[in-house]
Amino acid sequence: MKDHSFLSRVRKILPELHPAERKLGELVCDFPGEIASYSASELANLAEVSNATVTRFVRRLGYTSYEEARRHARLEKDSGSRLYLNTVKTEAPHSPSVYAQSDIKNIERTTSSLDESDIDALTQALLTAQKVSVIGFRAGAPLAQYLQWQLLQVIENTVMLPNSGQTMGENLAALSAKDIVVVFGLRRRISQFDLILKIISNSAAKLVVISDESMPIFTAADWHFRCSTLSSGPLFSHVGVMALINLITNRTIDAAGDLGRKRLESIEYLNEFIGEL
C-alpha cells in the first residue's frame, strides 16, 4: 500500500474490519485530521476504543507504527486537503458575521504583507509585456480567468493557458523575454505544478506566482504574492486572493493612463453598438 494515500488505505480495508476497528475507521474517514493531530491514546479515547484497537488498526493499514501513520496523514493535511479541516469537536459556525470576520482578517493579512513597490513594478511590467499569460488549476482556474478578464480591459494580448485543445507544452514553448506568466498556486496544487514553475522560470519570461500561505516562497519567481486563505468552515477562503487581483488590475488600469482609458471607451462603445449589454 506504499503508493496509496492515507484515506484510500482506510477506505479499502473498512469493510473487512471488526466492529471496534470499523468504528475507529469510520471516525478517521469522517475526520482524518484527528489522526494527524492526536496521539494514539487521545484517538482511542475519541473513538471510545482501546489502545490495542488503534495499534491493530494502523498495522492493518500497512504502517509499522502509529507515528508512521500520523506522519503520512500530516503530509496529506499539509497538502491542503479540505477533508482534514473538519474535527470531531468543532463544527462550522452558522453565523454570517463569523465568516465575515474571518474573511476580513484574510484580506488584512494579505494586503498588509504586500510591498507597494512590488505592485508598482508589476503593473509597469504588465503594461509593457508583449503577452500576458495566466495559468490556474482547480480553485485557481476561476480566479485566473477573472484576472485575465480584468486585465483584458487594458492589455489586449492577455490569454489563459492552456488554450482549448492544446497542451501546456505547446503554450510554454513559445515564451519569450517580452512575456509575463501569472501562475495561481492554491491548495491543493496539481502534481505537475512545481515542474511547470521550473519550466517557466528557466525561460526568459517574467514569472508571477500567486499562492496561499502554505506555499514556500518560490525564489526563482520575479514576484511571489502569498494570500491568506484561512476559513471558519471546511472550505478555504479566497477573498484575500480577490483583494490582490482587485489591487493589481485597478493599479494597472490607473497606470495605463490615456491609452487605457481609450481602450475602455472603445470596449464600452462596441458593447453598446453590438447590443451585448
Rank of each mutant, 00 (worst) to 15 (best):
R60E: 07
V54K: 02
I119P: 04
Y84F: 13
Q124E: 14
P32R: 01
T87P: 04
E42T: 09
S117A: 14
N51T: 09
S41V: 12
I119R: 01
R74E: 10
E67S: 13
S113I: 02
T87F: 03
R71P: 06
N106F: 00
V49P: 06
T53L: 15
V88I: 06
E67K: 11
I119K: 02
I35D: 00
V54L: 12
L24M: 14
E68A: 15
E42S: 14
S50E: 11
S65W: 11
L83P: 03
I107G: 00
L43I: 01
S112E: 08
L75G: 13
A52V: 05
E42G: 11
Y63A: 08
A69D: 02
S50I: 04
E26K: 10
V54A: 12
N86A: 10
K105N: 11
G33L: 06
G80C: 10
E68D: 12
P93C: 08
V58C: 06
E68V: 14
R60D: 04
G33H: 01
A73V: 05
T90I: 09
S102W: 08
L114D: 13
E108V: 14
L46R: 01
R74P: 03
E26N: 10
L114V: 13
K105R: 15
V58M: 06
I35R: 00
N106Q: 00
L27Q: 02
I35G: 00
G62I: 14
S95P: 04
G25E: 13
A125K: 08
Y38T: 09
D120G: 06
D115A: 14
Q101L: 15
E91H: 05
N51C: 09
T64A: 06
R109L: 11
A73M: 04
A52W: 06
L122I: 02
L46H: 00
E48Q: 10
S39A: 05
E76L: 05
D78T: 10
